[in-house]
Design a protein around this nucleic acid. Structure first.
Length: 162
DNA sequence: GCCAACGTTGGC
DNA sequence: GCCAACGTTGGC
């Protein structure tokens, strides 16, 4: 099992949208960046995904999802009415892929980007590298574990504080 | 909504 | 295959 982080604008597709999707599962379409696409093609069933809200106030990790279906053709590339239409893609050789994600949990307290930046244990994480805007990125097992721990610790503290 | 940092496109 | 111009991302 490997770990990933996927960015989405909550106005477009939020963790709530995923949770409320049929079977709490949805296709992650619209990725139009080659490196992000290649990362999606590496994903395996049941890999863990940090669900990240970008262009939010504040931006941060808001939940956990699992890969429910490995990379397959993103059909929006063939739909002229779609924002994600790509006239240069062909049916014979589709350019863009998507995976399906299944909702697992929403963090009781989201982890803001700024907190993640401050954490020495997350040094080297792609998310916090300067200028990084990769929307689908790998996360190391150590970073994954630490982030889950942060979410748990934050919960405990909230409970203790009442 | 601004704009810096990236990524892509296309003329040459 | 270089690189200027253009388009996009995403924090702020």
């Amino acid at each position: 099992v490997r770990y990933w982080l996927m960015k989405t604008e909550p106005d477009v597709f939020s963790i709530t949208h995923l949770r409320e999707s049929p079977n709490a599962t949805a296709g992650w379409d619209g990725v139009r960046n080659y490196l992000a696409r290649n990362n999606m093609r590496e994903m395996k069933l049941e890999d863990g995904v940090l669900f990240y809200h970008s262009r939010a106030t504040p931006p941060g990790v808001v939940g956990i999802a699992r890969v429910a279906k490995e990379a397959h053709t993103d059909i929006t590339q063939f739909d002229p009415a779609s924002d994600y239409y790509d006239p240069k893609s062909t049916l014979e050789n589709p350019r863009w892929s998507q995976v399906c994600l299944r909702f697992e949990q929403e963090l009781a307290a989201m982890l803001p980007l700024d907190d993640l930046r401050q954490d020495p244990k997350l040094e080297g994480m792609v998310l916090i590298q300067k200028g990084s805007r990769l929307s689908v990125q790998p996360v190391s097992a150590a970073h994954w574990k630490h982030i889950l721990k942060l979410a748990g610790v934050k919960l405990e503290k909230a409970a203790k504080d009442g």
